[in-house]
Amino acid sequence: MLEVSGLTTTYGAIAALRDASLTVGAGEVVGLIGPNGAGKTTLLGSIAGLLPISAGTITFDGGDITSTAPEKILRSGLALVPEHRRIFADMTVEENLKIGGITTKSSERAQLLDEMADLFPVLRQKWDTPAGYMSGGEAQQLAIARALMSKPKLIMMDEPSLGLAPILVDLVFELLETLRSQGRTIVVVEQNATRMLEVADRAYVLRSGEIVADGTGQELLDRSDLFDTFVGG
């Protein structure tokens, strides 16, 4: 469904991502793990069209989306839940969700709003509250729900458990399970490597801007050198 090959992204002099290639099949949950600064966020940002790409190609759902504007990529069915959630703080929960569904028809949008309220009961409670007043866990749910509003064929999440208390991290992973059971295709960047690998069908390990390992979640869990690769050895 998503195919990335030879992707290189540079910030000024810094090559944040070098020659990265990966594939994601329909219905898969794919994890991207690796230490801070490994290029995971850059990879997602490049796919979503937020960052200018120096080399490589990205195809999604049969179409070339290399160097396309982010709004067009979203419209082709690829959504990103950005790092740090980036919710619109002075807009209400409902307004945040509506923006998420800006590409849908208004009748459909109303229906999606209902679906999200069912899927995330906490959002229903805070429906008319400005999103800036929500706790980290609530905001994360809003960010995910907002991305789901566009009915994406593939949803990418950047560190959904970042800065959350352990109990909320559990919640995020439960949510991943729920979304997977709905048959959605998901790419997740996670620092919480062990848990990610337990959930993921397949995963890629990044380090210093390169993809250094890949395999099914279980394969990577079984690899004894993972700890070293991951925390730097």
């Binding site: 937020l50 504007a69 709004e71 980036r86 619109f88 002075d90 566009s150």
Partner: peptide, 14 residues
């Protein structure tokens, strides 16, 4: 309003 508060994220929403 969304674009005024965070332009890039608004684009990510389409």
């Amino acid at each position: 309003r969304a674009a005024a508060s965070d332009f890039d994220t608004a684009r990510l929403m389409g």
